[in-house]
Write a protein that binds this DNA or RNA. Structure first.
Length: 189
DNA sequence: AACTTGCACAACCGCGGGGTA
DNA sequence: CTACCCCGCGGTTGTGCAAGT
């Protein structure tokens, strides 16, 4: 396992948010050379990032086929069904949602679905009196790590009504992926 | 108008598995 | 057979933005 970074140039490694320039370098490099060994790719491209970081950036954000924002109702349903089946196997779930990344699905689940499940569970617990004190606790706990302990159709009905992706992806503050790709086309080749 | 709180997303970290020398 | 390296996964944290008070 890679407990020890075999690289002695740790001081050189950049962390934190990616800059437009770094994105362009990575896109450009992959466009010309394709994906390869990430560590050497990072070095060859002249990026002061770990291969790991490059891979993550590429897979979750820069890949041309990645779809961002606006998770549809169908996708929500699918995510819920697959999660019921497999638990937190995000990458496995992501494979069934073309263009979606495991990270995005994971975030979506944590920030929205899980929250609604918890709320629903709490509401149910409250309305059903305190007769099942222990039971309610375990239910909530079950919702927390739904891994393999709950049954598929057990999602609260009011989940359907939850406010979908209301933010119509207004996150393009600076530049969109289209911009980047057109830039790299101008830049590269 | 300023401050506080909550939400959503991007990125990092640690761990485990598989492949190769 | 063992050790090392790289990849991929899942969990967690940090940051920016928006809404509410």
């Amino acid at each position: 396992m890679d407990k020890k970074p075999c690289n002695s140039q740790d001081a050189e490694v950049r962390k934190g948010p990616w800059t437009l320039e770094e994105d362009l370098i990575l896109i450009n490099y992959i466009a010309n050379h394709g994906e390869g060994v990430w560590n050497s790719l990072a070095k060859s491209a002249g990026l002061k990032r770990t291969g790991k970081s490059c891979r993550l950036r590429w897979l979750n954000y820069l890949r041309p086929d990645v779809r961002r924002g606006n998770i549809t109702d169908e996708e929500q349903q699918l995510i819920m069904e697959l999660h019921a089946k497999w638990g937190n196997r995000w990458s496995k779930i992501a494979k069934h949602l073309p263009g979606r990344t495991d990270n995005e699905i994971k975030n979506f689940w944590r920030t929205r679905i899980q929250k609604h499940i918890k709320h629903a569970e709490t509401f149910t617990a409250q309305s059903s009196d305190q007769t099942h004190d222990q039971a309610t606790t375990s239910q909530v706990m079950g919702a927390a790590h739904v891994a393999d302990s709950y049954s598929p159709p057990s999602y609260p009905a009011n989940l359907e009504a939850f406010p979908g992706p209301s933010s119509a992806e207004s996150s393009d503050n600076f530049w969109t992926m289209e911009d980047i790709w057109s830039m790299q086309l101008l830049n590269g080749d």
